[in-house]
Amino acid sequence: MGSTYGKIFRISTFGESHGAGIGVVIDGCPSGLDFDPDFIQSELTRRKPGQSRITTQRREADEFEVLSGVFEGKTTGTPIALIIRNEDQRSKDYAHIAAQFRPSHADYTYQIKYGIRDYRGGGRSSARETAARVAAGAIAKTLLKSLGVTVQAYVSQVGNLKLQQEYGTLDLSQTENNDVRCPDPMMAQQMFDYIDGIRKQGDSVGGVVSCVIKGTPAGWGEPVFDKMHAELGKAMLSINAVKGFEYGSGFDGVALLGSQHNDAFFKDEAGSVHTRTNHSGGIQGGISNGEDIYFRVAFKPVATIMQDQESVDQNGNVAIVQGKGRHDPCVVPRAVPIVEAMAAIVLADFYLRNKASKI
């Protein structure tokens, strides 16, 4: 019922923001894969709260426990279960909205759908659920790394502050060297100062995370309904606060003529087929063509702001929702590892589906 993703490399997440913990069950992971707990923990640390003053100050170590599926440092081919215990819940911060619907949150829709909702931090609708995805994504990344495939995301826009360079001209190794996760140091500082100013106003701001996948061989993906870009879009749009997804030339491509947009093929000196341009974003007909896969994900401003907002309560009465609790003024710095994780899960699934389709 909406908590499982994937066909062969399949993940099911569970848990709520203020419950005992959150976790994930990963089914379909091949046996014999190296299980690197330090790498998984490092990925969770990139996503965890409290990293700087421009992120939520909730303090969670986000340390995980392995419940099954691993033996002597290797995956066994059976379901891998990981759990992350919640440690710094402050449920009292949400008592005031127990009967109120916060603007642009899932409070109202969850109440209508289920007739009940966990108002503490949004319960299941909280972005805290994404920690489970990051843990699963780390295992998917390990599988992809063994195949020579890498996934790298970075912040390319905050509000109106936007990187103008193409990803190929950026030094993406600089992404983790600042709190915003923007590979351009000067732009990163401008973004940080802007987010910090928004935070002091009790407001929030949105942004864009760009992602580049290198090393994907030609032939991964499926036709018609399960196209690779369709699955990437679904995976990205399933992340909290995401409002848009585009790959390759995206919306800017409509301004080009066909003669400008077409990616001409050629054979290099080694005999491999490539394209001279990559407006297709590495995907044609829903199947990878061997070029870099690149896409962009738009995140809205965080819905919880430290300002009073007009709304209604469960009885339809006018209510003033007061901003309380600990929240990110801009979600994109912590969203970078989430975008990478979901992209890795999609690619790992397609790799296994491609293997299964061949004799």
Rank of each mutant, 00 (worst) to 15 (best):
M1N: 10
G2V: 03
Y5P: 00
I11P: 03
A20M: 13
S31E: 15
D34H: 12
S42G: 06
R46Q: 14
R47N: 09
K48V: 09
P49Y: 00
Q51N: 03
D62K: 02
V66K: 13
E87S: 14
Q89C: 14
P103L: 10
A106E: 02
Y108I: 05
Y110H: 12
K113F: 05
Y114A: 03
I116Q: 14
S125R: 01
R128M: 10
I139K: 01
T142F: 00
K145H: 12
L147M: 11
Q152A: 08
V155Q: 09
S156D: 09
Q157E: 11
K162H: 15
E166C: 09
T169P: 03
L170Q: 10
S173N: 11
S173T: 15
Q174D: 15
P183T: 05
M187S: 11
Q190E: 15
M191F: 05
I195S: 03
I198V: 15
I198P: 00
G202T: 08
V212Q: 03
A218M: 06
G219T: 05
K227P: 00
A235I: 10
A235G: 10
A235E: 11
L237H: 10
G244K: 05
G253Q: 14
G258V: 07
N262V: 10
V273A: 12
T275G: 00
G285P: 04
G290N: 03
G290W: 02
R296K: 14
V297R: 13
A298T: 12
P301R: 04
V302M: 04
N317M: 13
I320E: 13
G323D: 10
V346A: 00
F350K: 12
Y351N: 05
N354Y: 14
K358Y: 03
